[in-house]
Every structure is written in structure tokens, then in C-alpha cells.
Amino acid sequence: MIEIRFHGRGGQGAVTSAELMAQTAIGMGKFAQAFPSFGPERRGAPVTAFLRISETPIKLREKVYEPDVVVVLDATVMNVTKVDQGLKADGVLLVNSHHGVEALRRQYAFTQKMSVIDALGIALEVLKVPITNTVMLGAFAKVMGQATPDDVVEPFNHRFGPSLAPKNLEAFRRAYEAANLEGRA
């Protein structure tokens, strides 16, 4: 079982990220669980969402305290939230930023493995809006080996409908092709 925590701001799709990846994993025959950090939802406020993916049924219902992966959808959240809190020593930190890995390590003293992707740039180019969730999912799927672009077609179609699904699939695929561990894309 791997446990993932998403950080974003209300309205950026952190919760949707966790949900889409859970639905993707379930569609692949795996077990998964996605849930938000419950509370009044406010656009712009820092939010977290949680995801578990496993080959066997998941019975744990506590929050994720020691994630294997942390996904940061909005770099500005790192200034107000300690995003690597509880992240396992051999865990992975996946960040949306136009800065490089080393720059982020220097600024925030991250010690785990990292992957950085300019998700905002891809989102603005492909989706024309600064919503980075499907881009970050592409990076997550690639770096963690959890899904391929083919695996997300159905959940994306279901969630986004015929007008928005192709663009989000393209955003996912762009990140999927570009992302790598310890690298910047």
C-alpha cells in the first residue's frame, strides 16, 4: 500500500486529484481510497487530500500521517505549510514549480527524493487555466509507476465530459512524458 498526501489551495483540484487517481486505480482492479481533509471548503485556503492505493483491500480509515508521496499542486503553499511533514525518509516529494530541485532543497531543506515539474506552465498552455491537478497526476503516475495515460481515459471522461476530457488527457500526457525522479520538467 502506498499513501499519498496532496497539498493545494481550495479550487485548484487537490481533492479531485486524489479522487481521480483513486478511481483510476480502482478501474485498474486495484484497491484505493481517497478523501479530503474535511471541513468548510474555502476557495484559496490551503487544503489537503489523501489517497491510498493497494493491491489488497484497505481497512485503514485514519488520516495519512506518514505518506510515501507528497504532491504539491501550488508552490505557494510551501511557504505556509510544512509539506514534507511526516514524509517517509525514502518517500517522494512531487512539486509544481518552475524552480529546480536543488533550489527548492536549499529554500525548504527538503531531504527526500524529489521530482519537480512546471505544471502551471503546462496547465496554462494546454488548459488555458491555472488548474494543475491533472498535470500533477500525470507526473505522479509516471514517477510512481501507478498508471499510464490509457488508464486515466475512462475516469477523465467520466469526470470532465466530452468538452474538457481531451484537454485534461493531453495535460496528463504532457506531464507523464516529461516527469522524472530527481529531475525538473
Binding site: A18, Q33, A34, F38, R61
Partner: peptide, 10 residues
């Protein structure tokens, strides 16, 4: 509430 109602699961 939430710990079941808002979970996505198989």
C-alpha cells in the same frame, strides 16, 4: 459523516 460519507472507495 466524512470518514465514510466522503470517502471514494471501490
Amino acid at each position: 459523516g466524512f470518514t465514510l460519507s466522503h470517502f471514494i472507495e471501490p
